[in-house]
Design a protein around this nucleic acid. Sequence first.
DNA 1: ACGATGGCTGGGAGCGCTTCCAGCGACAGT
DNA 2: ACTGTCGCTGGAAGCGCTCCCAGCCATCGT
Lengths: 337, 337
Amino acid sequence: MAAVAPRRQPTLDEVAERAGVSRSAASRVINNAPHVSRATRDAVEKAVKELGYLPNRTARALATRQTGIVALAVPDDDPQLFADPFFAQVIVGVSAALEDTDLHLLLCLASSGRGRARLTKLLQTRGVDGILLVALRGDDPLTDIVRRAGVPAVYGGRPLHFEPEWYVDSDNVGGARLATEHLIGLGRTRIVSITGQMCTEAGAARHRGYREAMVIAGLSPHGTAEGDFTEAGGAAAMKTLLDEHPDLDAVFAANDNMAAGALRVLGGSGRSVPGDVAVVGFDDLGIAERTEPPLTTVHQSIQGLGKEMTRLLIGVIAGQERSSIILPTRLVLRESA
Amino acid sequence: MAAVAPRRQPTLDEVAERAGVSRSAASRVINNAPHVSRATRDAVEKAVKELGYLPNRTARALATRQTGIVALAVPDDDPQLFADPFFAQVIVGVSAALEDTDLHLLLCLASSGRGRARLTKLLQTRGVDGILLVALRGDDPLTDIVRRAGVPAVYGGRPLHFEPEWYVDSDNVGGARLATEHLIGLGRTRIVSITGQMCTEAGAARHRGYREAMVIAGLSPHGTAEGDFTEAGGAAAMKTLLDEHPDLDAVFAANDNMAAGALRVLGGSGRSVPGDVAVVGFDDLGIAERTEPPLTTVHQSIQGLGKEMTRLLIGVIAGQERSSIILPTRLVLRESA
DNA sequence: ACGATGGCTGGGAGCGCTTCCAGCGACAGT
DNA sequence: ACTGTCGCTGGAAGCGCTCCCAGCCATCGT
């Protein structure tokens, strides 16, 4: 069994003394900087091992002005919303990217005024090296707070009406086109669109992709209803569309939740899927496999999003010249279309 | 509009100089320590405001030997498992408790060897003031790592075969008794139990509660099958029990997932719930409301768990004499029993 | 033989804060 | 007048690290 935790961690000075070298020399070895002789290196390494030395994070942070911590700010602390698997996926992605670095992840639930104040203070007191922001609405106060603090920031998804210097986003337009083209390829022509909130970038972009695909194919958009990315919203939108365009033969829903709602309503109206109406969704975050029938949808990797955001942020912190990233999406064929 | 972020944050020295006092005096004002005259206080506060001074977190941490950060270690980074709403709830609870402190939350996904190594290093390099551990199996290596590091630690739920110095746990035994007593009160006598893994404390405790209630009522346990806390496991256990005890009239499942599986199997076997068989679950984490019929279950507050763990940890870090906590559970009546 | 190079070294000055402590004047008690 | 208290003060020594820089010795070219 290893020794019990020492009361006090040894310091670099102690290591240096034991190794019979100066503190600077010891430091050089620890950081394996150049200009260290073989003998010095060996002596220091021996002392380190014997003492069980590990550099104090805080002291190093003070000297280097780098905390080794990146924050992930989540604009919602409503348990329901944070419980969305989306965030868990982002976190897993971020963690994966952090895995082979010395950086750690600080999680900030910052929706309430209180939470935001805490975050502001954290940034201004140089508590973190950079920050990751996801799922922001265009007018979220976080945008401003972060800009003011002058801390490197990477956005996941673009807020509407604001193009951050660095962001990672899924190819929403491309994905929506893919979905719509698939429906067109199936021979459908009376394709309607259930959109997300048009006041979000994703909502707007996915609808744009749908329209582009229609126009390119020489079709005119057959009908559109705005949902809110929830299943209930999707169901309501589907009802409206069914009233206005009873002849519709396909629907593109801007996410899977809404597609699930649409599926339910279509079933209720006696239409078969994909027989009478083909349906495709967007996201592929689990529910798509559990609908009846399973949903053909556009897959975007949220873990990938988190991972790329983190890599980008690390680059930015390191002062590298980096540019934003658009992540590809792909169509996943199941039974609904 | 407010000024742009200053290139460099002002330091305490600058504040002191501007206020015409010594750095110690300024520090005393900032930390509102005693022995500060009215004049000094005013002068410093004025300077602070004018300069927009905020103390540097890292420097303070080095001087006080307190990082102002607590870690939450999650033993699973499998996206599927971390996506469990359980963790989101814990995080929300923890965040709530942290809200009116100066502490921040560091999230560590520490299941892989790599993740564990990172955590070990974080603890040993004095990167955090304390750590919160949830959902540990008895033999999880984290237990050891944490003990060795000698960092204040609070457990959420007790690992089997190991009673941590500080933990917060739901009253699993009490909750299971409540559930079972309810079934008994309904006049059921042939009550079976679907357990979770008996190698977890929660699994064992909930089964114990069931048995105690049966014994107290003068009934003998009518049958037991071990599940694994998943819906599929619950379904399998239910099948087994139906084979062995076709006359059963009630089932206590150690969590809602398994209860949902049991419900499905019971429906498939032509039995009505709660008519032929009454079912009660445990957890009340969302699914319970969405089963058919909605599930009567034992409610435990996971947010409350996170909150209490955090409060306890803060106390322990502050050096207070604190003891572990058992959180009450309560029965939520829906339609399945 | 000479200076020029160049790897290695330790001293020391930070990083920005807290906190101990000696010292100060003012004021009360004798 | 002298001592003792007491509230307040600034100097200075940390906290544990990084990193610049002047200085040292060998080696090299001429």
